[in-house]
Design a protein around this nucleic acid. Structure first.
Length: 480
RNA sequence: GGGAUUGUAGUCUAGCUUGGUAUGAUACUAGUCUGGGGGACUAGUGGUCGCAGGUUCAAAUCCUGCCAAUCCCA
């Protein structure tokens, strides 16, 4: 194996798909499991998920949402209670048909999503308006058999996610909750993962099966394809009726409740890899990086080593006292150059190099991962590290926004639409609101309506497909 | 859903056409020297050739089925 083969061997620009797979595997985020479509998360990958999870948990808690846990098996009779919902998921459900050697009469689904199970429970728990709102979030996995080619984090047959399920007394309150969650999602993804998102509604065709409407956040990836980053659904009474989620109001009149459900998954990790990674490997935003700062000590002999390591130890303790996640790479068998490349592959946001020259000058070399810039920082400026990490976080979002902006264009003419879609990206194009046009466009170009952004109503233009009066300007794109 | 390609040690790989018990590199272990961008030398360790059948005196190699992965197109 040559020197070049140790790291990422293809360029992000030239072979995006292969590049992505290599980054996931070589940065040791995940590996393939022995069953088609399943992956194993390794500690560096899981740590990112844990970081996201803790961010969301804090924000959910502030919004009065608590965590619960649901079982993985759902009887077919339950799953089938809401017909449209069932029809939408049935093709990709894994079924448990046996317990030991005995056949199970009412076969059991490995949950593709838990609305039916959660609401069966909710109907038992809710009696009065005093029981509402009921807001529970569940961190678990969902299973959906993927027939299409799978890709780590982006399309797998089992994925980590959270699904939140809330119940309200009024439509207004439920709809407000839908928006509140979407806002939490957007802020978290932008602040933590440094990925800009566009929020809005899904079209009728693309909405969650069983929902009244679906709100979504969408991002554009560097290869020009769109990725759905999270959804928040207004379920109306579509589930409360078949599942009899009812409450008695203050006048003791019984009503069906109003519900929402919402989720994000480890797809967000995939989005982060694609958005920020480069030809050297992964690039992690400081806020979610399991290791934010790696220190590489450099020394020539044992007595130099003692001196350097004691200095390094002091710096490490200093940074740790400021809640910075630091790792000292004291592996003696590897050269500094090897370590530099290794940590760049793993995406650690900031590297500190400390060697004899630095001790002499009372300073250290710091190298930023996202732009690979090196500079020096004197020992007495150590408190600046937190500021630098914050700046990196902000710069990464800024760069990602710029990248997204470059990948977005306005088009009103169909011929141009068809030619531009080949290059990928978000296309803002006026639309009449009819599903036929949406379907035709999908058929002819492969692009669908990713999101109808909030405030994109517009009746002054002509539908890009049928030339009738427009109702909005949705974002069209080919998606993952 | 359609097409193309692939599976040999942790990783990459030679061998397959023409069957005879697997090549090299890297990684790993030990030691010495080294150390500011993927170090050097020496000596070692590591293999159900993806899985299951079949053909054969003999299968990594030929045949059948299965499993898994990658890429491209819808």
């Amino acid at each position: 194996m040559s020197k070049e083969d140790v790291g990422i061997t293809v360029s992000k620009n030239e072979d995006f798909s292969e590049w992505y797979t290599q980054v996931v595997l070589k940065a040791k985020l995940a590996d393939y499991a022995p069953v088609k479509g399943l992956i194993v998360l390794r500690p560096d990958g899981y740590a990112i998920w844990e970081s996201l999870r803790s961010t969301f948990d804090k924000k959910f808690a502030k919004n009065g949402i608590r965590n619960g846990f649901l079982p993985i098996l759902i009887p077919e009779s339950l799953l089938g209670k809401e017909q449209k919902h069932f029809a939408g998921f049935n093709p990709e459900v894994f079924w448990v048909t046996h317990s030991g050697t005995n056949e199970i009469g009412d076969k059991l689904a490995l949950r593709p999503t838990s609305e039916t199970l959660a609401y069966t429970m909710y109907s038992k728990w809710i009696r009065s308006w005093r029981d509402l709102p009921l807001k529970i979030n569940f961190w678990n996995t969902a299973l959906r058999a993927e027939i299409k080619a799978t890709k780590p984090f982006l399309r797998t047959s089992e994925f980590l996610w959270q699904e939140g399920h809330t119940v309200h007394t009024t439509q207004e309150e439920a709809e407000k909750e839908v928006m509140k969650i979407l806002e939490i999602y957007k802020n978290s993804v932008e602040d933590e993962l440094a990925i800009p998102v566009t929020t809005g509604k899904k079209s009728e065709k693309e909405k969650f099966v069983g929902a009244v409407y679906t709100t979504t956040m969408e991002s554009i990836m560097p290869d020009g394809k769109a990725l759905q980053m999270g959804t928040s659904h207004f379920l109306g009474q579509n589930f409360s009726k078949p599942f009899e989620v009812k409450f008695a109001d203050k006048n003791n009149v019984e009503h069906f409740a109003w519900q929402t459900s919402w989720g994000i998954s480890w797809r967000l990790i995939g989005a982060m890899i694609m958005t920020h990674g480069d030809d050297k490997g992964l690039v992690l935003p400081p806020n979610v990086a399991p290791t934010q700062v790696v220190i590489v000590p450099i020394y020539k002999n044992d007595e130099g080593k003692e001196k350097i390591l004691s200095k390094v130890d002091g710096i490490k303790n200093n940074l740790e006292s400021k809640e910075i996640r630091v790792h000292v790479d004291d592996r003696s068998e590897l050269s500094p150059g090897y370590k530099f490349n290794d940590w760049e592959l793993k995406g650690v946001p900031l590297r500190i190099e400390i060697g004899p020259k630095d001790i002499e000058k009372q300073s250290m070399v710091i190298a930023k991962r996202y732009n690979r810039e090196k500079s020096t920082l004197s020992f007495n400026e150590i408190e600046k590290i937190s500021i630098i990490l914050d700046e990196i976080q902000k710069e990464m979002l800024k760069n990602a926004k710029e990248q997204a902006r470059k990948n977005t264009i306005d088009i009103s003419e169909y011929t141009e639409f068809k030619s531009k879609i080949e290059g990928g990206g978000f296309i803002n194009a006026p639309w009449c609101g009819k599903s036929e046009c949406e379907e035709k466009i999908k058929e002819e170009t492969g692009a669908d309506i990713r999101v109808i952004p909030f405030d994109s109503e517009n009746s002054n233009l002509k539908c890009v497909y049928c030339q009738e009066q427009s109702v909005s300007i949705p974002i069209f794109a080919r998606g993952y």
